[in-house]
Design a protein around this nucleic acid. Structure first.
Lengths: 343, 343
DNA sequence: AGCCGTACGTGAACCGGTAAAGTGCCGATT
DNA sequence: AATCGGCACTTTACCGGTTCACGTACGGCT
């Protein structure tokens, strides 16, 4: 990409302000070595000339990169992202913007591609750090990315993230809370529509679900794994509702599958929540636009993103403490959960 | 952000391959001046050393930037993006990745912030070009961004984009098609839930809607403007369905509002499509997971994104021809549209 | 007066590449 | 035999900042 315009550089500013470019640099990085008066004059000249430090040159000289990489792995080409990610990204952005950094986003098709991308980004010094999401059990990214020495923050339970500094939310407790809530309403046949079996947080929720069900003396085997896509949520719901001993409540692993589940219930002529209660995860606007609105295990995803970004800066600065927990998703009851019809 | 690892540079590769760094540079930019044998040796050494050209240095020296900026303007903090954008972005990414370029994404709160961001990005040479979306009538971004000289591609009808090279889809024809389709089914009271009044493509659709309705001898004044958010789509639908002379069909400006509209119909006990037909715009997985599934004016948003990215490269190369039209959204009938109950 | 410490700046050496001009060699042309 | 063009590199000058060793002037202390 060619740059057409005549550039104004630090030299122009320095010349016009009657100082050396070193002085301009110091002024713009607010560090000692220039008097307040000179500093002010430099700023004034820069403003007049419309000069902003050249990010690229700055990165090169300062060996720092103001760009953070985020690769999201989506299997299919046309898939689109869950609302979760958009809020998550907007949280990250908020923090990055405050430090004049930017987010480099890429959708990849599989983990190998993701690994290759991070290697490329890091080796070519395109990014200064990365945010790793969607950890799997025995995640194949861990070894190669650690070897790379890429500063990164992992989103996920420390048990999954293979030593990467992590930010996580207590999915086990939340899943348990969800089950207890439904049980307290009188439900005994509770099902769960989860994400892919290998995916870490889905696994954690699945285990917690089963454990809590057992603890309550209930059968915790009504669990289905899906690919997080709406259609699969619909299919899973359909098979659960058509199966023997129909569940009276279903917990979903995200909101889009819950919406799809609500549609399936409607299609089957089942009333929500009388015939079946539905509980979503990752509360987004989707949950509020269905009828009835979906109860959800909601957490502040925006804030989650902010914390992740902050953690990454700490990692880069070498001051991160290991793992950071953000608040556990809390139940937000809306119209889609209630006591079963004849409890 | 500090770089911890000891870096391997072009000099190391050059030394180890027994050539000058100029030769390495030529080899890696595949240009003439090095023999096939030497070239091969250089590649081999680079591979052994795990060297990739330093993007930052390359940008600085070559005065080219491999990063494309995209700012999306969302009013509220927690809003999240429509599915449209995610597909659009994935289309852009596909093309960028093929040229080792990346997308810099930022969510901004208003157009002034967007203008400031682009100025900052361009002046600091963070980006080599930009993609401009969501044009308004008399868009305030046009003048300042043109003055900047920032290479950019606008997404929107040429009448809106103020001379920026643009990629657009024929919303007027599509809106007209939608009306004709519903009218052919027997609908006479057709309403439309559009985006913000000032937004260019909403305006175009609104005008085409009204014109086509008039042409068919129908009343085209049942139009509501919203902010594209689900809740607002729900509110608009409610007011339409509760108003006098209830419409028998509603066209929405995106899919999330249509989903919300479907929920409102359910909430009011209206059957879809018997009591009211619903037609979405921007077909995403959301349209397939409701019950009944939503008919939509669908276009290949992924492909749209690809074309936009390609156009941007042409603009940067100085070879763009002005405006590029991508296929008109086509009606995809599903379960949410049908003849009115007693036509 | 002589010495020192400090605040303010300067100048040059990088950072890791690219690009354009320069060099040496070789076969072909005149 | 002298000239020339072209290839295959090498050399050198940047790109636009940051960093740091090194002046310089000034005030305070003895």
């Amino acid at each position: 990409m060619n740059v057409p315009a005549p550039r104004v550089t630090i030299n122009d500013v320095a010349a016009r302000a009657g100082v050396s470019k070193g002085a301009v640099s110091m002024a713009f990085n607010n560090r000692p070595g220039v008097s307040a008066a000179t500093r002010e004059r430099i700023f004034e000249v820069a403003r007049q000339l419309g000069w902003t430090p050249h990010q690229t040159a700055r990165s090169l000289a300062g060996r720092r990169v103001g760009i953070v990489g985020l690769a999201i792995c989506r299997p299919a080409r046309l898939l689109g992202l869950e609302p979760f990610y958009m809020e998550f990204i907007s949280g990250i952005e908020d923090v990055l913007a405050g430090r004049s950094c930017s987010l480099l986003l890429r959708l990849v098709r599989d983990l190998d591609e993701e690994i290759a991308l991070y290697e490329e980004w890091w080796r070519s010094r395109t990014i200064g750090g990365a945010i790793l999401v969607d950890f799997h059990r025995e995640d194949p990214r861990i070894a190669p990315l650690r070897a790379l020495g890429l500063p990164a923050v992992a989103v996920g339970h420390p048990s999954l993230t293979g030593g990467f500094p992590s930010v996580w939310t207590d999915d086990a407790t939340a899943a348990s809370d969800a089950v207890r809530y439904l049980a307290a309403l009188g439900h005994r046949r509770i099902a769960r529509v989860g994400g892919p079996a290998g995916l870490g947080h889905s696994g954690i929720r699945a285990a917690a679900f089963e454990a809590t069900m057992a603890e309550l003396g209930l059968d915790g085997r009504r669990q289905v794994s899906t690919g997080f896509v709406g259609e699969e949520g619909a299919r899973a719901t359909r098979s659960l509702l058509l199966g023997p001993e129909r569940p009276t409540a279903i917990v979903y692993d995200n909101d889009i599958m819950a919406v799809a589940g609500a549609a399936v219930a409607a299609e089957m002529g089942l009333a929500v929540p009388d015939d079946v209660s539905l509980l979503a995860w990752d509360d987004s606007q989707l949950c509020r636009i269905t009828h009835p609105p979906l109860s959800a295990m909601s957490h502040d995803v925006h804030h989650f993103g902010e914390e992740v970004a902050r953690a990454l800066f700490e990692v880069i600065a070498g001051t991160h403490k290991g793992a950071l927990q953000v608040p556990t998703p809390a139940l937000t009851p809306r119209g889609s959960t209630g006591p079963p019809r004849r409890a």
